[in-house]
Amino acid sequence: MADTVTAPITSVEEPLDLVRLCLDEHIYVKLRGDREVRGRLHAFDQHLNLVLGDVEETITTVELDPETKEESVHTTNRKMDMLFVRGDGVILGLIPSILYTAPLPKKLDNHAINLFRPPRERYETPILFDLSKD
């Protein structure tokens, strides 16, 4: 199934790589305020700002019945064609598991792991764009 991804086949070595593999895929995102959205991922950035298409949003509310003291859970659904989601509301993103069949973690040597230094040789394609142009 990984063949359907148009991005160069890359290993997932940091969490945002995982998000990149979800471009054009239908994803589930859990947001603050008991909201969930499902939709096709069209864009993201390092803040987890997102643009989603064909979106369905679910808002969950819990109401307490004052008499019976029983909690009842209500959900409301909304559909939206195209939605920008601000990244600071994102808690969790779920990835359709068909995306990769191979197990993610290669056992890395301890010395190769430095959280703040990105791993080498991650991409097969040359980097075409230079940030200094921005």
């Binding site: 940091e14 945002l16 959280l115 703040f116």
Partner: peptide
């Protein structure tokens, strides 16, 4: 969340399996 830690970055963004 319990799972297998696939990777993480300096922001503590986490990928779990």
């Amino acid at each position: 969340y319990k799972g297998v830690l696939a990777c993480l970055d300096g922001y503590m963004n986490i990928a779990l399996e």
